[in-house]
Simulated assay, not measured.
Amino acid sequence: MSMTFFGASFDAHDAARAARFWAAALDRKVADGADEHDAVVEAGDPGNGPRLAFHKVPEAKSTKNRFHPDLITGDYEGETERLLALGATKLNEVERGGARWTTFADVEGNEFDLIAG
């Protein structure tokens, strides 16, 4: 195979603000040169996921994401509180078939899940 998943890009109202949230959430760094138009969260150590890019768009988010990140943690309650303190909003909590997860919105309204693992 000659292809690798390099990263994911997100639309944003303020790219630097969104990047700062995700960098803090994932314990990563925002790449130099971030501004309201374009910002990148660098990939972490190998195995810590892809690079994340944020790009300013003129329109506001209006519907549910067609793609969203899933995060997993062994400290579900602690990470839930940390994400809320960073500015995330809790949208929904689910317990089903022994699985537990919460859907959040980031500071730009983009949905993501935190899975108890």
Score class of each variant (00 low, 15 high):
11 D>Y: 15
40 V>S: 05
95 E>V: 09
90 K>F: 07
81 E>S: 12
6 F>N: 15
16 A>T: 07
98 G>F: 08
87 G>R: 00
77 E>C: 06
84 L>D: 05
33 G>Q: 10
36 E>I: 02
71 L>R: 00
102 T>M: 11
96 R>Y: 15
56 K>R: 15
77 E>D: 15
64 K>M: 14
15 A>H: 07
95 E>K: 13
12 A>E: 03
31 A>C: 10
4 T>P: 05
7 G>S: 13
102 T>D: 03
65 N>H: 05
52 L>M: 09
9 S>N: 14
97 G>L: 13
62 S>G: 10
96 R>M: 14
20 R>F: 07
28 R>W: 08
37 H>G: 08
26 L>H: 03
84 L>M: 13
115 I>M: 10
67 F>G: 07
34 A>Q: 01
113 D>V: 05
8 A>G: 10
8 A>C: 15
91 L>N: 09
78 G>C: 09
45 D>F: 10
113 D>E: 11
52 L>W: 04
2 S>F: 14
115 I>A: 02
78 G>A: 13
3 M>R: 13
109 G>A: 06
73 T>L: 04
62 S>P: 02
56 K>P: 03
100 R>D: 01
86 L>H: 08
23 A>I: 01
53 A>E: 12
17 R>V: 14
85 A>Y: 11
58 P>Y: 10
74 G>P: 08
23 A>F: 03
2 S>Y: 12
86 L>Q: 04
67 F>P: 00
10 F>T: 00
39 A>L: 03
68 H>D: 04
106 D>C: 05
9 S>W: 06
76 Y>M: 09
46 P>Y: 05
85 A>S: 15
90 K>Y: 06
98 G>M: 10
89 T>Q: 11
96 R>L: 15
117 G>P: 02
56 K>F: 13
56 K>S: 11
114 L>Q: 00
95 E>Y: 07
49 G>D: 06
77 E>Q: 14
116 A>N: 08
70 D>T: 05
33 G>Y: 11
49 G>I: 07
19 A>H: 00
111 E>D: 11
101 W>M: 06
66 R>N: 12
79 E>K: 05
92 N>P: 00
117 G>T: 04
113 D>M: 07
95 E>A: 13
105 A>Y: 07
8 A>D: 03
52 L>Y: 06
95 E>S: 13
85 A>R: 15
40 V>H: 06
79 E>C: 04
12 A>Q: 04
81 E>H: 13
27 D>S: 14
34 A>E: 02
93 E>V: 11
17 R>N: 09
53 A>D: 09
36 E>K: 10
